[in-house]
């Protein structure tokens, strides 16, 4: 099939592809983020470009309780992604021994909160846990639990896929050498899954850091994650303060993802094919 071949490999075609990328994707993906970054330093914005540069918005943040909000977001995301990873990994490992039909049901259960709009999930939590004995309304825990429920599907699916790819010869060799199932899990399976586990953790963390719609329904007054603050700031018209907060959120999330991916590259082994 010469036509598709030359489309990708011809020199002219390659440049055309690059140009297409620059024209279509860069503006869509990168430009809005650049605009936010520019806005966070703007004194005002009435024309095509910001009117002047200032670090006043950041100075405001430093004086206010934004640091608290960042901490709340970090703690929530760490707790939620940790719990999601634990639950998702455990479910994926346990499901291996189960019949296929049960496995599919478990998977569907985890995916349900993703398929349903997260506003609905928030509302559902609000209603479900508003009465004793399960009275969680107005607690910090309900935010963490809601985030966990929203992101566990990603952890579960990523670990399930990694387990399916794992050559059973590793665990069987380990077992034949006399290793108990627990030793096989801790010393062979989990280390081999580590790259997938950290990838899943990073994804869950990023999703939780940015979660707004369910959080809006649930957050107590003493537990305001950063996205809620951004929403509040822009809602009252403080666009540039909101932009500065957004930059902080973005930078923190990226920094954490970068740190996680460093663990991952250290943990990735070339497996014999």
């Amino acid at each position: 099939m010469p036509a598709p071949y030359s489309l990708v490999h011809g020199r002219g075609a390659r440049w055309a592809l690059r140009a297409l990328f620059l024209v279509l994707f860069l503006p869509l993906f990168a430009l809005p983020l650049l605009v936010i970054a520019a806005a966070s330093f703007a004194t005002g914005w009435s024309g095509a470009l910001p009117n002047g540069a200032t670090t006043a918005h950041y100075a405001d943040l430093a004086r206010g309780d934004s640091a608290d909000a960042l901490l709340v977001s970090l703690l929530t995301a760490a707790a939620a992604s940790g719990l999601a990873l634990l639950t998702g990994t455990w479910a994926a490992l346990a499901a291996q021994a189960l019949p296929r039909r049960v496995r599919r049901a478990v998977n569907a259960l985890f995916v349900l909160p993703v398929a349903v709009p997260s506003v609905v999930v928030g509302l559902a939590f609000l209603v479900a846990f508003s009465e004793p004995p399960l009275l969680l309304n107005g607690t910090r825990e309900i935010v963490v639990i809601a985030h966990t429920v929203l992101v566990t599907a990603f952890a579960h699916q990523s670990v399930t896929a990694a387990l399916a790819r794992l050559d059973p010869a590793y665990e069987q060799s380990a077992a034949s050498l006399g290793a108990s199932p627990a030793r096989v899990l801790w010393q062979v399976k989990l280390p081999l899954l580590l790259p997938s586990l950290t990838a899943a953790a990073g994804l869950c963390f990023a999703l939780s850091m940015g979660e707004l719609s369910a959080t809006m329904m649930l957050y107590p007054p003493d537990w305001l994650p950063l996205p809620v603050r951004i929403h509040a700031a822009t809602d009252r018209g403080a666009l540039f303060t909101g932009a500065a907060l957004a930059v902080v959120l973005m930078a923190t999330t990226l920094a954490v993802l970068l740190a996680v991916s460093r663990i991952r590259s250290k943990a990735s082994y070339r497996q014999p094919s």
Partner: peptide, 13 residues
Amino acid sequence: IGMVVQQYALFPH
């Protein structure tokens, strides 16, 4: 027992 398989299955880590 001891077991040796075609794809070696040495623990890569």
